[in-house]
Design a protein around this nucleic acid. Sequence first.
DNA 1: GCATGATCATGC
DNA 2: GCATGATCATGC
Length: 450
Amino acid sequence: MLGCTPFPYDDADVDSIVTYARKLEGTRLRDYVDRNAIANPRRQRGVVGNLIERYYFLYKPNNDKRPDFPKVGLELKVTPMKLVRKNEYVAKERLVITDINYYGVIAETYETSHFFEKASSILLAVYLWEPEVDPLDYVFKLVEHWHIPPEDAPQLKADWETVVAKVKDGHAEDISSRDTLYLEACTKASDSSVRTGQPRSDVLAKPRAWALKKSYMTIVENKFLENMETIRRRPSERDLDLLSLVQERFQPYLGKTEAELAAVFGYVHAGRRLPKDLCALITKRILGVDEKSKITEFEKAGIKPKTIRVKKNGVPKESVSFPAFDYVKLAKTPFEDSDFYGYLQQRYLFVIYCKDAVGEKYRLSKVLFWQMPESDYGEAKRCYEEMQKHVIEGHAEQSVSKKRNRCCHTRPHSSQKEKPVLTPQGDLVGKKCFWLNNDYIASEIAKASK
DNA sequence: GCATGATCATGC
DNA sequence: GCATGATCATGC
């Protein structure tokens, strides 16, 4: 049968292609490619994918709109993962699916869309990227025939529609990756000054492409790993996007006190106080996920659950802390490259408990997805740079007080017993971290509730 | 009562 | 034993 094709697989048979592709697992490009045959063996974008097409699947990379395996509508995607710590792999990049044509997309529905067609059948080949390693020596970790999982379809559709709605409103120039959870409209990297037309406005917009987010791809690629659980949807919930699903699940528990919730889920034990991470536990239980598991949907969208206890006056009892920072690193890292900047882009599920007007008890009052508005990054940057200035001037022990900044401050994050850490001047100072001001959080919660 | 400092609890 | 998230404690 293989004799019918010029390939080492039957290009009219998906199974044959996938079976052949799987043999990549555990091997390297070097196993198929003669180094001398490669004219320009530089590290460059897409080089691994191109070489695989040419030297493993034995076809010429095409740039036209047809699928890579046109007879069966199968799209090949070759993409890197990297190791961030022991046993923890993350996607190194988003997975770009296809360009967005602003003129075409407004005539599509999600189900008839170009994106849907391209994403419906993907041959995913994942290799392990390593610094300082020749691309020919990257090892392929995983080859999968991937389809859109049914449980992700509602969220992907919601994301797709969010982006397309902006094009329909004549605001393609306002599209941002921040608008969506799993699927994003990412800018095309080549030249950031390029602009293109859009159908319902004369304003030029950046050209963009549909891409599955990095956080999403991390989960797709880790799916063979354990301790990750998907929220099991009831039939009536099948078409809900993530926020609606979460809100629906929390609905029956709103108004209950922490003690009541703890009792419902069996966390009350004589002579023992309630666990400190009760909220995180309860969130998982309300969503029907084992307490030891991570929630697949939250990981895909990079969402962290966070308890917020709100006092009678509407202000959270505590500010929200981030991990401690390194003085030496802080001194030499610009805000835009900092860990802090990364944390600010974190998306949260705020699980909000309010103290009721009469009693003294906190009651579960609402859940809310939150992300810092971009318009506040400038204020956060001011805080960062003020702390940076203290460190550079040899006053690492000095914090940026809450009164000096609308959004954030710095504070110690260690006990006296814990050992101090080095500053650029070689002094030893107790660890500190950035915090989001509780009154800032209060105003953000109020904004979202309007 | 708030801002800031200090410490606890848990998981790896 | 440390990193991280959550919360308590105290001094103005």
